[in-house]
Design a binder for these strands. Structure first.
Length: 287
DNA sequence: ATGACTAAATACTTTAGA
């Protein structure tokens, strides 16, 4: 089962990149963040294209900002929009949706940015992360939490730690909040697969940051033991950050082996969309 | 140069992102 997560920075703007990416990578489950669309608008925009490829769609969005979704072609059951008890700013925002896909509880999350350490938005970020921990911990298992955490777990996850001193994404309280979530038994599957390597998922649009590979790793896939033990590949799809009108985030893609008990979800027919043309497919690179 | 770019509404400028 292939699970991907991608902060698309406006699904409306990203459709010309998103649909070809779906056809090339062919994930079974996709977690999206920053759709920036209300639920009806999201379904109107991509519902038919997703259905044609065999995906069911769970959306939790709002106009203008935020917005998350899960696409699945291995089942999409018990959808929950939002997180019970999560704070708002000041009102609840569309930052989480979860569903059971192929026997795994999948969470698509867009953690608040935090803006400035010590600000109200920063406090909101920390409180939101605490609510996420409670929801994941008390929710169905096994679980996988995918999304834009807006936290670089360690200094190895930013291109220049000195450049981020005093900024959000790297402060001790943020990292402690992330560590608290991981204390539920969640594994950072990309870092565990590529220890000590330069791996980023976000590069600022400005100043050729992607070209110079000056980025951060803030989009994470956190999996409970049972899921982490099935990981066969875990990588960042840098190809999707290249070319015309990309998101500023790249997708993270994780391949799971079959579950030990054989429960890999319902068998589904292949999607009707054509595969990528021969010779145009790019294999994942180890960098 | 508290900037550079992209996106959405507040829309021809401001807010937000990270």
């Amino acid at each position: 089962m292939r699970i991907a997560t991608w902060n698309v920075n406006s699904l409306k703007q990203r459709v010309p990149r998103f649909l070809p990416w779906l056809d090339e990578r062919r994930p079974d489950v996709v977690c999206l963040q920053e759709t920036k669309l209300g639920n009806d608008a999201c379904v109107a925009l991509v519902g038919a294209e997703c259905a044609a490829r065999g995906y069911e769609l769970a959306v939790h969005g709002e106009a203008q900002w935020n917005g998350v979704a899960i696409l699945s072609r291995v089942g999409l059951d018990d959808v929950v929009q939002g997180i019970e008890g999560a704070p708002g700013f000041p009102h609840p925002e569309a930052r989480a949706v979860s569903a059971t896909c192929g026997g795994v509880r999948v969470h698509s999350v867009y953690v608040p940015n935090g803006r400035v350490p010590g600000s109200d938005h920063y406090a909101y970020k920390l409180a939101w992360l605490a609510a996420l921990k409670d929801a994941v911990g008390s929710g169905p298992q096994p679980a996988i939490v995918c999304g834009d955490f807006n936290i670089a777990p360690t200094d190895a996850d930013v291109f220049d730690p000195a450049a981020y001193v005093g900024q959000t994404h790297v402060t001790v309280p943020e990292r402690e909040a992330l560590a608290g979530l991981q204390q539920l038994g969640l594994h950072d599957v990309v870092r565990e697969r590529w220890p000590g390597r330069r791996v980023f998922t976000y590069w600022d649009y400005r100043a050729g940051m992607f070209h110079k590979d000056l980025g951060m790793r803030i989009d994470l896939v956190l999996a409970t033991d049972a899921v982490a033990g099935r990981v066969k590949a875990a990588w960042v799809d840098r190809q999707a950050r290249k070319g015309t009108l990309p998101s500023d985030h790249a997708p993270v893609i994780v391949d799971l082996d079959e579950a030990p008990d054989g429960d890999i979800g319902p068998v589904v027919p292949p999607p009707s969309a054509p595969a990528a043309k021969p010779g145009t497919t790019t294999l994942p690179q180890a960098r």
